[in-house]
């Protein structure tokens, strides 16, 4: 009895193995698997007949049958893998260098992109990001900033003046600096804030001059603020903006609303300071104006200059965008030409 069943098992396994080696498609393999190992398959059927054996033979036969069954199942899996690999090794039907399918893509204005980066950098350092009016009073744009009536910056050729009633005087703000005093008035001191925004100069436009451009103003007022802090914050800001350590220098410069006043230059990133056409052979690129807030400006903002000191800076960002992307003409920024914007 056992011998019959054993022989049958042997024969079935042998047949299954030989069939396995001759199947050539995944479908044939599946059919074979069902026929041999399936719920109604040959091996399963034989195991069901185990009850016909005498009790002492059931154990050994069952173990042998299960061993064969799992060995066969493994062989089927191996064969499946072989067949699948063979089918996949066929004709190439994908080219990874063909561009993918993307949703319609919009474009960020390159100047506003830098504006937002700068906002993020200063937010991360705990600065408020404020807004101010673009039409400004003569008081905030000039007088409160210690720019007296005869200062060259107030000449007709630099400033856009507005038609107003005779007793008031409005200008298109020539810089974001009026917000130094407005911010101190609104929030008091200590304060740390940046003010991004549009400014205006009555200048004929050409490849490097625009009548309107963007600046970011910065202001820190507190007890004990010094030039060392100005250097520290500017270094942190520029390092983040350029994504690497930049060498900067503070060069004395006169602005009426700071004392001492500086221009901050950074070492030319093209020639590493050796001198090239980008930096006009000087090795340095003028980056921004800054300085220690003038005591009269602190007073105008309601802060006591004996108790508080501060620093301020103003950076023009159109030029930064031009440098970053090597843009040859500043007028592209306001021309609305999609061939320009599609590149960003």
């Amino acid at each position: 009895m056992t011998d019959d069943l054993n022989r049958e098992l042997e024969r079935a396994v042998e047949q299954a193995r030989s069939a396995l080696s001759s199947v050539s498609t995944l479908d044939e393999l599946e059919a074979l698997e069902t026929r041999v190992l399936g719920r109604k398959g040959e091996l399963t059927g034989m195991l069901r007949r185990i009850g016909t054996l005498p009790p002492e033979q059931r154990g050994p036969f069952g173990q042998a049958a299960n061993r064969e069954k799992s060995a066969l199942a493994e062989a089927v899996e191996a064969r499946r893998e072989e067949l699948r690999n063979a089918s996949l090794a066929g004709v190439r039907d994908f080219d990874p260098t063909t561009p993918g399918i993307r949703p319609a893509r919009g474009h960020q204005h390159p100047v506003l992109a830098i504006r937002r980066e700068i906002e993020e950098i200063f937010l991360s350092m705990g600065f408020l990001v404020l807004d101010g009016p673009e039409v400004e009073t003569e008081h905030y744009n000039f007088e409160a900033l210690n720019i007296p009536g005869h200062h060259p910056a107030r000449d007709m050729q630099d400033t856009f003046w507005l038609e107003t009633a005779p007793d008031v005087s409005f200008v298109m703000r020539t810089h974001t600096s009026p917000m130094q005093v407005r911010a101190m008035e609104r929030f008091g001191v200590p304060i740390r804030a940046v003010v991004p925004g549009r400014v205006y100069r009555n200048e004929t436009c050409d490849a490097t001059h625009e009548a309107t451009f963007h600046q970011v103003e910065g202001l820190v007022v507190d007890r004990g603020i010094s030039v060392a802090h100005l250097k520290g914050v500017m270094g942190a800001f520029l390092g983040r903006l350029f994504g690497r350590e930049v060498t900067v220098r503070l060069r004395p410069h006169y602005f009426p609303f700071v004392e001492p006043g500086f221009e901050l230059d950074f070492q030319c990133v093209h020639c590493e300071g050796a001198g090239c056409s980008v930096c006009k052979r000087s090795g340095w690129i003028e980056m921004l104006g800054c300085g220690m807030v003038h005591p009269r400006v602190l007073e105008a903002g309601g802060a006591d200059p004996e108790e508080f000191t501060g620093f301020a800076f103003g950076v023009g960002i159109d030029r930064l965008a031009m440098m970053r992307h090597v843009i040859e003409d500043i007028r592209h920024f306001h021309a609305g030409d999609l061939r320009f914007f599609e590149q960003f």
Binding site: L123, D131, D222
Partner: peptide, 26 residues
């Protein structure tokens, strides 16, 4: 100026910590 600004060691100010934000319209 005459002492030289290059000779000033940079440092970051110690400031009070408080929430900061953009203007709502921004």
């Amino acid at each position: 100026r005459i002492h030289g600004y290059a000779a000033i060691e940079p440092s970051l100010p110690e400031v009070a910590c408080g929430p900061v934000e953009l203007e709502p319209v921004t």
